[in-house]
């Protein structure tokens, strides 16, 4: 009875995962794709629970469905792009060929997995005397801080690099504001720049000292070089 129940739960969760994944790829609107992907993550978290990994299931929900997908949905909302238009399929005969080849490949994989797999059958988990602690938070924490301490520390460096990289990428390369006062910035009357225009007080802006000097013709070398 318990086996049947486990099997039904597996079929439900696996079907939800595969169906949501197909919907994610097939949707035209990226927002619907994101919501379908959240469904995949939820179904996978359920599968992890059936595989006796409650900590990973919780992390899956919190980090994937909670943090990463919020980021993705945020970017989708921010960019607000139009839907993808479906392109006409060139080379129509390739579609049935691809479906056929994919079916053959998948049948081969399933055959190998189900028939040629001669790994020793594990004993039933009910048969073992004491319940295993593998998969609980304490065992994963012990593994992280003893055997896998070096990868764990390298992970922190990775996160630091990702932080710096994301800030660098998302920073707007600031254009120089127009009203910024640069030392040496000044407004000259036109008669000072061109001696022929005597009495003309049209202002000529120069933003930097070098620009003012060039406007006044003080730096002849740089002008000829240009």
């Amino acid at each position: 009875m318990s086996d049947i129940l486990t099997f039904i739960v597996f079929i439900l969760l696996a079907g939800l995962a595969i169906g949501s994944a197909l919907a994610m790829v097939a949707q035209r609107n990226p927002l619907y794709s994101a919501i379908s992907l959240i469904g995949v993550f939820g179904a996978l978290a359920g599968l992890y629970l059936t595989l006796a990994a409650p900590f990973i299931a919780a992390v899956q929900i919190i980090v994937y469905a909670g943090a990463i997908m919020v980021l993705v949905v945020f970017v989708i909302m921010l960019l607000n792009v139009e839907e993808e238009v479906r392109r006409p399929v060139r080379l129509r005969y390739l579609v049935p060929t691809a479906v056929l080849l994919a079916a053959v490949l998948f049948a081969e994989a399933a055959f190998i997995l189900f028939y040629v797999n001669d790994a020793p059958a594990p004993p039933s988990p009910l048969a073992t005397a004491e319940p295993s602690t593998t998969g609980l938070t304490a065992s994963i924490g012990t593994g992280l801080f003893t055997t896998y301490l070096l990868p764990f520390e390298i992970t922190s460096i990775l996160i630091l690099m990702a932080l710096v990289g994301a800030m660098t990428l998302a920073r707007r390369t600031a254009a120089r504001p127009q009203d910024l006062v640069v030392p040496g910035a000044q407004v000259l009357p036109l008669q000072m720049v061109e001696p022929a225009r005597v009495g003309d007080d049209t202002p000529v802006r120069s933003d930097t000292t070098a620009e003012a000097a060039r406007t006044l013709g003080l730096n002849e070398q740089e002008q000829t070089r240009e």
């Binding site: 943090a67 990463i68 980021l71 990702a162 994301a166 800030m167 990428l169």
Partner: peptide, 16 residues
């Protein structure tokens, strides 16, 4: 999962 989170931050920064 950690690598995926870092990839999400960098990738979406690149997209923006």
């Amino acid at each position: 999962i950690v690598v995926a989170a870092a990839e999400a931050a960098i990738g979406l920064g690149i997209v923006i």
